[in-house]
């Protein structure tokens, strides 16, 4: 039996006095696409950042690929992992940000190779070949020498996806990848993500794109006020919402 890629049990997280996650349970099966939806401030992004250990959760159990995130259980005690081990774990999880966060001083090519070369120790020519292949995959061949500022938002986000994929991640996290884009550029990014889903990549997507969720997601989680209010297959959750909150939310976004 294979363990789930991500498993959260009662995960809690507070920032100075404000509890953002109030005990979240979530299971992400390997090779599936999970969408997190919910109003802003509901804790979707925080949950994503906890999975990548960009934030440390305060309580509960969070496992990625069967391993505890940021801790190691030995002799009934939890040991905090060293920075180096955490970096190693992060390198296996790709993350795509709302505001792309491409390295502004590096070319498209260097953005995609820097992690392979510096973190994974891949040889430069191998990294370059891989970068070219990924650029072709996201439809941006020929843009190798461009700087991020010379690209449109949609193109930047596709480079960001290529940068994350270059690390051969076992899990991809998307934090509202299309929210900062002009409406006519949203499609090109979603297309790349759909392609990726078809290849069997495990993906967790925080999104406001309900059509994407309906079409691509295997499971949809609706977060509100730091708890999961509803979850299930998109056709159930999005078409026949059971809770009043989700009904209210959907009536606003659809």
């Amino acid at each position: 039996m294979t363990s789930p890629m991500v498993e959260a049990i009662g995960v809690r997280k507070s920032y100075v006095g404000v509890e953002v996650l109030k005990g979240v349970d979530l299971t992400v099966t390997r090779g599936e696409v999970t969408c997190l939806i919910g109003p802003s401030g509901s804790g979707k992004s925080t949950l994503l950042r906890c999975i990548n250990h960009l934030e440390k959760h305060d309580a509960g159990e969070l496992r990625v690929d069967g391993e505890l995130v940021g801790y190691e259980a030995r002799n009934g005690k939890l040991y905090e992992l060293s920075d180096k081990r955490i970096c190693g774990e992060r390198a296996q999880i790709g993350m795509v940000f709302q505001r792309f966060n491409l390295f502004q001083h590096l070319t498209v090519m260097e953005n995609i190779t820097v992690g392979q070369i510096r973190v994974k120790g891949v040889k430069e020519d191998v990294a370059n070949a891989k970068a070219r292949e990924l650029l072709a995959r996201v439809g941006l061949d020929g843009k190798e020498k461009h700087y991020p500022a010379q690209l449109s938002g949609g193109q930047q986000q596709r480079v960001a996806i290529a940068r994350a994929l270059a690390m051969d991640p076992k899990l991809m996290l998307f934090d509202e990848p299309t929210s900062a884009l002009d409406p006519e550029l949203v499609g090109e990014v979603l297309d790349v993500m759909k392609d990726l889903a078809r290849t069997g990549m495990t993906m967790i997507v925080v999104t406001h794109e309900m059509n994407f969720a309906r079409e691509v997601a295997n499971t949809v989680y609706f977060l509100d006020g730091g708890v999961i209010e509803e979850s299930g297959a998109p056709k159930d959750v999005l078409t026949n919402p059971r809770t009043v909150r989700l009904q209210g939310f959907l009536s606003k976004v659809l």
Partner: peptide, 18 residues
């Protein structure tokens, strides 16, 4: 330098010094 740059560097597994 934008905070997002550090987050992106961290997310591909770079150490603080890198």
């Amino acid at each position: 330098v934008d905070e997002g740059q550090i987050e992106a560097a961290t997310s591909i597994g770079m150490t603080r010094i890198q």
